[in-house]
Nucleic acid binder design. Sequence first.
RNA 1: GGGCGGGUGGCCUAGUCUGGAUAUGGCAGCAGCCUCCUAAGCUGCAGGUCGGGGGUUCGAAUCCCCCCCCGCCCGCCA
Length: 570
Amino acid sequence: MDALGHFESSIKERLSKELTSLGFTGDFTLERPDHEMADLALPCFQFAKSLRKAPQVIAKELCASLSPDEHIGKVWEDRGYLNFRVNESLLGPLVIHEALDHRENFGRGVPRPGRILLEHTSVNPTGPIHVGRARNPLIGDTLARCLRMCGHQVITEYYVNDVGKQVVLLTWALAHLTEKDVPPADREKTDYKLVGYYQVANKLMESSTEVAAEISQMTQRFEAGDPDTIMNVRRTVDMMLDGIRESLSSINVTLDHYTFESQYILDGSARDVVERLKASDYAMVEDGADYLNLEEFGVHGRDTRFFFTRKDGTTLYTTRDLAYHLDKFRRAEQLLNILGEDQKLGQKQLASALQILGSERIPECIYYSFVSLPEGRMSTRKGLVVYLDDLLDEAVERAYNEVCTRRPDLDDDKKRQIAKDIGVSAVRYNMIRVQAEKQLIFKWEEALNFEGNSAPFVQYAHARCCSILRKIGEYNKQADLSVLSDPFERRLIWTLAQFPEVVMQAGEKRRINMLPIYGHELASALNQFYGAVQVLRSEHQDARLCLVEATRWALHNALITMGIAAPEEM
RNA sequence: GGGCGGGUGGCCUAGUCUGGAUAUGGCAGCAGCCUCCUAAGCUGCAGGUCGGGGGUUCGAAUCCCCCCCCGCCCGCCA
């Protein structure tokens, strides 16, 4: 357990004893109020009824029976609350040494059993990734980092949609068209180039019955499981994926595995799912097409019918997704999916079908709302779209201009490196700082914010720590830390002490937006300390250096957990 | 029509699961702070019917009911 946890549980235990002797048994809440007020607080209103005493009286009685000890620094009563100040002469040294000893691992949880397979991104490989879709990899990658920091073993995976008319059409296009048939691409990247081929082929298919027939035949061969056709399409998709991977990599997202949907046609497991579902009590047939009746599973109205084959007997996307989930459960104990909010019904149906198939586990899903533009929903066809690559370029360029005006002393390579660290991070931070369910309207000025609640703000605080530490070189890490007692130092220590708990909560509750919130809070505490307290050449230099370095590690680790660079200079 | 999710100062947002003290920050605005460890910073001011209405409670942004607004879904597509 982390330092703060020891304090909290010790105080809670003592309270529990005192409450029992007053006649109260059961659970109670101990809260962390605003730090100005107290470190921990016990609202005594919750005991008033069963003890038949006024809250103020209870608080006073508890206060009288509790004296400061190893963990309690101060205890007092205030309008029905029992307030605590933790024993700061113990907490400070404990937390600071914890950070100084563990450095990159400060805040890391103990290893936990069981593998988590986290599926994220999984965008259809039909074109470059746009900012609407980018929310998925950013949430997924950040959650993966966070869970790993918590001590979990996490495998990340992209489920590649290489089945369907769109990708077949694209494959046809690559076989029958050349560069001169298509308009020039916006970028020298495969995902941009392929879009032109797709558009031209799509027009051809609409105007020519011959082309349409060829594509239809290809699709049929594909669904019949013809290995050559499937591998051919897969090669096309892989080209598209190269471009997507490049974009993901530029925002610091990489995935462990890519699983192709067509695999479940090739290996017959989608067929197995069909056979097993057909044999179930919930299976029905309409006009040759099979479906499940999910009325018993709480799926209402028209949605109760969940089709898993076409009338020609071929499998559907959802059937293959079932095979995929059964496969995933063979590879991991726990499944996590990051999905757009449009997938909710499908996942409900999928979970029901998994139960029918006898699976004891279902995936846990995290849904996010779509990112739209002020003009409306993003649409490639309407040209209402902002590509991730363009956003990143713009962010890095703006960051470069900022670096040039602020740090003319640096050489150009250094400036470019810092610009990249800052620009990319600003975009990442802004996407993950808002809870996933909230709908997001993309605005350039917000996405490129470098001040206030932003990545550069947190990075800047980290760079400030590094700058101080760089100037001093060696210092005495065994300095007496009890001298750290002014309000800014105490505030910083208190915030620092929260870090392990924040990582744990962010991971376990799947609320990664706690990370940027905390990062901002810690950076803010450091900046206030920095403005008010002299470190170098001060009376308490070494003790303060310990605090600065401890803060440096917490900031560093918070940034890395968010997938954000932690530059030592900016 | 049904289901799910969101609604918090001009704008963005935390807190809602697990009810508690003056509702968290940021942006924009106004007023200050660089002979001193990086001013991407700091200090101060101003700005709020927590969508609306009922209810439960000693106490509601938080729980329950009704309503309003916004988003998403309701294909033998993927």
